[in-house]
Computed example of a mutant assay.
Amino acid sequence: MHYIFNDLYFPPVSQADEEGVLAVGGDLSPERLELAYKSGIFPWFNEGEPILWWAPDPRMVLFLDELIVSKSMRNILNRNLFKVTFNQDFAAVISNCQEIKREGQNGTWISNEMIEAYCHLHTEGIAKSVEVWQDEVLVGGLYGIDLGHVFCGESMFSKVSNASKVAFIALVDYLKKENYKLLDCQVYNPHLESLGCREIDREEFMSILKSK
Rank of each mutant, 00 (worst) to 15 (best):
H2K: 14
F5L: 12
N6H: 07
L8R: 04
Y9K: 11
Y9D: 09
P11Q: 08
P12Y: 06
Q15A: 12
A16P: 06
G20H: 07
A23M: 11
V24K: 13
G25Y: 03
L28T: 03
L28A: 07
S29N: 01
P30G: 09
R32V: 09
E34I: 13
E34V: 10
A36C: 00
Y37C: 08
K38C: 11
K38I: 06
F42V: 02
P43F: 12
N46Q: 03
E47Y: 05
G48A: 03
P50T: 13
W54C: 07
A55Y: 01
D57F: 12
F63L: 12
S70A: 11
S70H: 10
N75P: 03
N80R: 12
L81D: 13
F86P: 08
N87C: 14
I94Q: 09
C97V: 01
K101E: 14
R102M: 04
G104W: 05
Q105V: 15
Q105C: 06
Q105F: 13
Q105M: 13
N106G: 04
N106R: 12
G107D: 10
N112S: 13
M114F: 15
E116S: 15
A117K: 09
Y118T: 08
C119S: 12
C119D: 09
H120V: 10
E124M: 15
I126P: 07
S129V: 02
V130L: 09
V130D: 06
E131K: 01
V137I: 15
V137P: 09
V137M: 14
L138M: 08
V139P: 07
G141K: 02
L147P: 10
F151V: 00
F151M: 00
C152A: 06
F157D: 10
S158N: 00
K159R: 15
S161I: 04
A163K: 05
A167W: 02
F168V: 11
A170L: 08
L171I: 10
L171W: 06
V172C: 00
V172T: 03
Y174Q: 14
D184M: 00
Q186C: 06
V187T: 03
P190I: 04
H191M: 12
L192Y: 13
E193L: 09
R198D: 12
E199Q: 10
D201A: 15
R202H: 00
E203T: 15
F205I: 00
S207A: 14
S207I: 08
L209Y: 06
K212N: 13
